[in-house]
């Protein structure tokens, strides 16, 4: 399911919502989470899961094509931990 399909689903689920309003809501949901992560903040959605920022150390790796040694700088990456309710629902279905 893509973002635009999710927007349609929300219109179907709530009979009083216009597509434009649904679009605004879905955008706010994901923008709020992105903004929080950008500022290094943790995101915690009960029943769904939580997002945290994890640091990755700098490392040396090889370009698999040329065999050349490249230095990869340290970076931050978002990490998602599935919430208990969703983990159980996904596994049991």
């Amino acid at each position: 399911m893509t973002k635009s399909e999710l927007i349609d689903k929300l219109v179907e689920a709530n009979g009083l919502l216009s597509r434009k309003e649904s679009e605004a809501i879905i955008s706010i949901v994901f923008d709020s989470m992105s903004d929080a992560l950008k500022s290094g903040e943790k995101v915690e959605i009960r029943g769904f899961g939580s997002f945290t920022i994890r640091a990755r150390d700098a490392r040396e790796a090889r370009n698999p094509k040329s065999g050349e040694l490249v230095k990869i700088p340290s970076k931050k990456t978002p990490f998602f931990k599935t919430g208990k309710e969703l983990r159980e629902r996904v596994n049991c279905a």
Binding site: M1, L6, I26, I45, A93
Partner: peptide, 18 residues
């Protein structure tokens, strides 16, 4: 409702692409 829709989609084994 938004999170319920996402959860039931994933529960059915479908993916969510944002």
């Amino acid at each position: 409702t938004v999170f319920d829709l996402i959860k039931s989609t994933l529960e059915e084994g479908d993916k969510i692409k944002i």
